[in-house]
Nucleic acid binder design. Structure first.
Lengths: 117, 117
DNA sequence: ATTAGCAGGCACAAAAATGTGCGTGCTTGC
DNA sequence: GCAAGCACGCACATTTTTGTGCCTGCTAAT
């Protein structure tokens, strides 16, 4: 979701990967998707608590981005206090097998690193 | 491979995903890995030509990063003109199933987008 | 009566990623 | 003799991403 530069327009054909990274790249997007996958449906503050270190603005922006790209569903209940539920769209669920692999890979990597100390 | 901020140190436990994205995130890393996977072994300029839009410095930096993190093998032949071959490490090959999924997903997404015009 | 939780928004600052334009020393093909 | 290809390196500029600190209006619980 970065704005396109001229150099990017030259890409087109080969860079499916560049395009994919444009949507799921960034520090918090995969972590958010992962949490939503694990918990099915989550509210804003629930998500925030579960992603330690994330700030309001990053969570808001990331969610908005994911929503605009059709990866996340946002359902707002008009009541007070407000209630908003987030969940993954079907399109996003197609990505889950990839996340499983990445998670396993990252996990192994982190545990090996810990042993170095 | 970004420098750690204080807020990141709070993470530790949950953010396997943040860690993974730190290594394979960025605009060019997955595209490079993907090309190397498809072609097994590639030379610097060969890679550059195949990744349309990438600049020297980004290719160099990305390769160095991937090398430091043990995802890419760099073999330098001492001869003139110079010859350097890049290939994936076994650890990186473990990620390939994830890339397959992401590639397929991104491809579908791009082709649908084209139809909108 | 005060507080906490809900779901964020805003202006601004800092940091990180990415790009631009040029140069290296050497050799082989035209 | 000139150009092109090899594999990059460097200073700098721009763009993008991420973070900080504070605020909103409402309600239910202490």
């Amino acid at each position: 979701m970065t704005k396109k530069r001229e150099s990017d327009l030259i890409n087109k054909n080969n860079c499916v990967m560049v395009h994919a990274m444009d949507i799921i790249g960034g520090k918090w997007r995969l972590p958010i998707i992962w949490k939503l996958y694990k918990n099915k449906t989550m509210r804003y503050n629930e998500l925030k608590r579960s992603l330690s270190g994330i700030t309001n603005i990053m969570l808001t922006r990331s969610l908005r981005n994911l929503e605009e790209n059709g990866l996340v569903h946002r359902v707002e209940f008009s009541q007070n206090p407000p209630k908003v539920e987030y969940s993954l769209t079907d399109n996003c669920i197609k990505l889950v097998p990839a996340l499983e692999v990445i998670y396993g890979w990252g996990h192994e990597r982190l545990s090996k690193k810990d042993k170095d100390f």
